[in-house]
Simulated scan of single mutants.
Amino acid sequence: MDVLMPQLGETVAEGKIVKWFKQAGDVVKPGENLFEIETDKTSMEVPAIAAGTLTDIRFGVGDVAKVGAVVAVIAGVGGDVRAKSVEPKRHDTPKAPQQTPFVPAKAGTQKSQTQKQLDPRFRGDDRSERRGNEPLNSSSQSQRDFAYPDMSPWREVRTPERNFGPAKLSTGRYVTPLARRLASERGIDLGRISGSGPHGRIVAADVDKAPVPSAAAQASTSQYYLVADVEIDRLQAMQTEAKSAGAEFSIGDFVVKAWAVALQRVMPEAGADIGLITTIDGRRATTIIREAATTTLTAIAREAAGQGSASPSGATSAVAMAAASGIREFTAILTSPFVSALAVGQPRRAPIENDDGSIKFIGLMTVTLSCDHRSVDEALAADLLTTFKTLVENPVAALV
């Protein structure tokens, strides 16, 4: 059977194929997605409506096909299963059928010549092709099982999950799917665009006219933040014991190591080189602590004092320490090459409630994790911050 380019709206004449879920030669079942299409008004995933083998793909990714064009061919049982792949960037459209010369119909014969028998699936009834009391065989039963009226390519469209944000903005304006995707890819704020479509709808042409923000601006708009309070009583106790033994390190030194260990456990591909961001005489300074996950605390303390590498090459994450006392929490702005940064506020004493309702004071510090969503998604960032919190509250775990 032929797989056609569906009609996505009364004024839509063509659609662009943005993704193929199947390849030529794959076996498909009714309801399985074949390809995804996109127009200026909407986007949808087109499913198969019959079982068989996808034998011919006639339009590739990026190609535009007219409504009703044969996009692919599915061969059923006994069909030709020789797979044919589409040639890149093929834009041919169905040729108009040749018109036969007009021949006047004989009286009383035109109705019978033009009347067509509809398939049972599209008649709206349950009539089968059986005659009389003929039993329903397995072949006809199989055909009936795969007759899904709601799987027609002309049915109501289904929006893919990946839709690049809501269709209605907080300003009340509506945005087409294509415009949302283009704006997301280019880092353009839709809230600052005036729509030229019907009723002020923002369309792709409006996004094309909008200025693309600079790289620095895009990096800023792509950031998101997670905040957590971390208990440090055990860490401070270990710090005191180490000092008694002649080995001194700061809470910042331990944070660098614990953050490197968390990265190694959750995102091993990120490496264990950490950028330590501090403020010296009012100026921002960055020291790179190499292989911080396996470096001793005393060695990290020496490198943090100014002996570490200043080249950020290879480091993708950083730790930023509060510039002055009394700073409870702050946010680190990401700069290249860092895709995540942990901002550490000053330690403080804070009251918490015990299980029995009594109050006690503990040592706390607030940390804020900044991430670039293009490199670190929210779930991964939450896992990182949770792992770091566990390591700091149980400091021995970061050393073994």
Rank of each mutant, 00 (worst) to 15 (best):
A107V: 13
A107Q: 09
G108T: 07
T109I: 11
T109R: 13
T109K: 10
Q110F: 08
S112V: 12
Q113P: 02
Q113N: 09
Q113D: 04
Q115F: 03
Q115M: 10
Q115E: 10
Q115T: 12
Q117H: 12
L118C: 07
L118V: 12
D119C: 11
D119V: 09
F122D: 06
F122E: 09
R123N: 04
R123F: 01
G124I: 03
G124W: 01
G124K: 04
D126P: 07
S128A: 05
E129D: 14
R130W: 08
R131H: 09
G132I: 06
E134F: 03
P135A: 04
P135G: 00
P135R: 01
L136W: 07
L136N: 00
N137H: 11
N137Y: 04
N137I: 12
N137M: 09
S138P: 06
S138Y: 14
S139V: 15
S139T: 15
S140T: 13
S140P: 06
Q141P: 06
Q141N: 05
S142E: 15
S142A: 15
S142R: 15
Q143N: 15
Q143T: 14
R144Q: 12
R144K: 13
D145Y: 12
F146N: 13
A147D: 13
A147I: 02
Y148L: 08
P149K: 10
P149M: 06
D150N: 10
D150F: 12
M151I: 08
S152V: 13
P153L: 02
W154R: 11
W154T: 13
R155C: 01
R155G: 10
V157P: 10
V157K: 11
R158W: 03
E161C: 01
F164T: 02
G165F: 05
G165I: 04
P166A: 15
A167W: 03
A167P: 02
A167H: 08
A167T: 09
A167R: 13
L169D: 06
L169A: 01
S170M: 09
T171H: 05
T171E: 03
G172K: 00
Y174R: 12
P177I: 03
L178K: 10
L178Y: 01
L178R: 09
A179E: 00
A179G: 05
R180H: 02
L182Q: 00
L182P: 00
A183K: 03
S184C: 09
S184Y: 11
E185V: 11
E185L: 15
R186Y: 10
I188C: 03
I188Q: 01
I188E: 05
G191L: 07
G191E: 01
R192C: 02
R192A: 11
